[in-house]
Write a protein that binds this DNA or RNA. Structure first.
Lengths: 171, 171
DNA sequence: TATTGTTATACTCTATAACTATA
DNA sequence: TATAGTTATAGAGTATAACAATA
């Protein structure tokens, strides 16, 4: 458990990171909307999966995921295969074209990063990635419920207290 | 200069960080759109500034900044004061209400972060913030031209090679 | 003529809600 | 009845372009 001031500084940095993300997207995204890019990246990293799993990893509603997937499928970057075990589900799989697009995007972004961080020490670069990975894990755990889930804060959590991935479907 | 593989891992983590950002926004933003939040955060951190400076720090077009600022002004969170030195410019200043809103947002986010990172060591938390700060600086330097600016990559930079903050204004 | 800021238009991302086809 | 996925609609964020006022 760290000091309050450290969390506060982290909050500031998270806010400012948006500028870095926008810079990267502007300079590397050509031909590939960021929604598709995120879908391709997760398929490349985790392999075939269902839409619902994708929505969970993206931390967005499944309706949003469905559209991003549809766009990527329209462009031939992935297939939605029938799942023999459950005919409601579809299995997402990267096509060779999708893999190519992902590789290209990856190359461009890596190149940009290498340029911007040219004056960083090897050690500092090596330090940042694992910390961000752990950060994401710390949030993932709460979202997917693989942990006590920590109280939902005194604040929001008004009606459904959803865990995302799904809009309530009232009635 | 780090190894290629390290930059690649960093690229993956940047992509995945979007999920963390969405989580945070969903759980803390109540009553304050993220555009306004970003504007308030920068005013709180850097003090009074012009719109153009704000656009630079946000790394978005000035037209976007102008709208976010207008929204925050409509809600009484900031003032746009005339600049006696240049009547085209306006000086942005946080109002007491804006400061209050910013403090509240900050409190909520800090609380969420403290909860999610409860099992992190003091050292790890202390490590992440400065690394992200430096990351942002490494990008800022290129954007605002306070550094050699590194070649604009073989890739894009087609016509105007803009530095953001401004749409070309053809003709 | 160039710069600061604004507005109009269009596109993307996102959430909510309602709908389908399966389980 | 509940779940996987889709679609419709609406709300933000963003970029491009054109415009006003001032330098």
């Amino acid at each position: 458990m760290a000091a309050q001031a450290q969390y506060e500084e982290l909050v500031r940095q998270f806010s400012a990171f948006g500028a870095v993300k926008r810079d990267i997207r502007r300079l590397t995204s050509a031909e590939c909307p960021s929604g598709s890019a995120a879908v391709l990246a997760l398929l490349g990293r985790h392999g075939d999966m269902h839409i619902s799993r994708m929505a969970e990893l993206l931390a967005v509603d499944m309706s949003v995921t469905s559209r991003h997937v549809a766009q990527a499928a329209d462009r031939g970057w992935l297939q939605r295969l029938p799942d023999p075990a459950d005919r409601r589900s579809r299995i997402l799989r990267l096509t060779p074209e999708g893999r190519e697009r992902l590789d290209e995007l990856f190359r461009h972004t890596t190149r940009l990063l290498a340029e911007r961080l040219a004056d960083w020490s090897d050690d500092d670069v090596a330090l940042l990635a694992p910390l961000m990975a752990r950060l994401r894990d710390s949030f993932d755990d709460c979202r997917t419920g693989s942990r006590p889930a920590a109280s939902p804060l005194p604040r929001p959590a008004p009606p459904g207290s959803e865990r995302t991935t799904r809009t309530p479907a009232s009635a």
